[in-house]
Simulated assay, not measured.
Amino acid sequence: MYLVFDIGGTAIKYAYLNEEGTILERHEFLSNSLHSLPEFIESLSRIYHEGKHEVEGIALACPGVIDAQQGKILVISAYPYLNEVCLTKELSNACDGIKVTLENDGKCAGLAEAWIGNASAYQDSIVVVFGTGIGGAIIKNKAVHHGGHRLAGEISTIISDYDAAKNKFITWADTSSTKALCQITANRLNLPISEVNGYFIFEKAEQNNPIVLDILNQFYIDVAVQLYNLQYMYDPEIICLGGGISKQPRVLEGVQKALEHIYNETKKQLLIPKVTTCKYYNDANLIGALYHFKQIR
């Protein structure tokens, strides 16, 4: 049995998982009462000490720039008191010296797909997660590829366009994150952004709203272009799309059609990337954190 924490911006989820990655028990609590490293460590260690299960190890999924090998958080905005903290050592010391591992939450989502998700049949894969930004995980030989500066998979910042007149560089997140998609839709429909979310967009699409259909078609093309770029940079066997909007069947269908359109129109592409959706969503960070633990134990 393993105790796994998913440290989110406003809440901390924790669960007990077995060796196969099955979640047997889960809980969560708000983190706004934690204001210091001692409070943070005490809160997590109390769960370990008061738990009814015999725990073989603790795995953590955490936002920010992570040195997974050292178990250290290099940069994190949600919990500034954790910056430059070797979290694995601090928590292990408070939990009877038990082994603790740490990995970035987006990378954990990728590992979940590589282990028992929709990329499990492949050695090399990429997971793209649409949300406030665009998260990513590059999986090589079933393990996270971190890169020389631990930035591999930080695909939000890919420069996708340049507005010469305004001297403005446009990133992929600026055009294709769920946040951007909602903002573009609100602007085109002259609505306040507070009235637009993913459900609203796809409800309008079902009603064949021409403006929304046009926005989505452009979105599919923008995504497909970058998937081709990712394909040629890393040559994964499969790319999995995650995030709430990827649950909409229209998204996978639209992206696949856009990929085929580019392939047929340009006559210069070498292959059509193999794309599917993620299997795990809310539980992905927990499952992937455990897989990371299993890989380095």
Rank of each mutant, 00 (worst) to 15 (best):
G9A: 09
A11G: 09
Y16I: 12
T22I: 14
T22S: 15
I23E: 12
I23R: 06
L24P: 01
E28T: 10
N32M: 11
I41V: 11
I47P: 08
H53T: 14
E56F: 06
I58T: 02
G64Q: 07
K72F: 04
L82M: 08
T88R: 01
L91Q: 04
L102H: 04
E103W: 10
E103Q: 13
L111Q: 07
W115H: 10
A119P: 04
A121F: 01
Y122R: 00
I126A: 08
V129A: 13
G131A: 13
G131P: 00
T132P: 13
A137R: 12
I138H: 05
K140I: 13
V144K: 06
H145P: 00
H149D: 14
T157W: 15
S160Y: 09
K166G: 02
T175L: 15
A180H: 03
A186H: 02
P192F: 06
I193G: 11
E203N: 14
I211Q: 12
D214T: 12
N217M: 14
Y228P: 01
Y232A: 03
G242Q: 01
G243S: 07
I245D: 00
K247P: 04
Q248M: 03
R250I: 05
E253A: 09
G254L: 05
V255R: 00
P273R: 03
Q295R: 11
I296D: 02
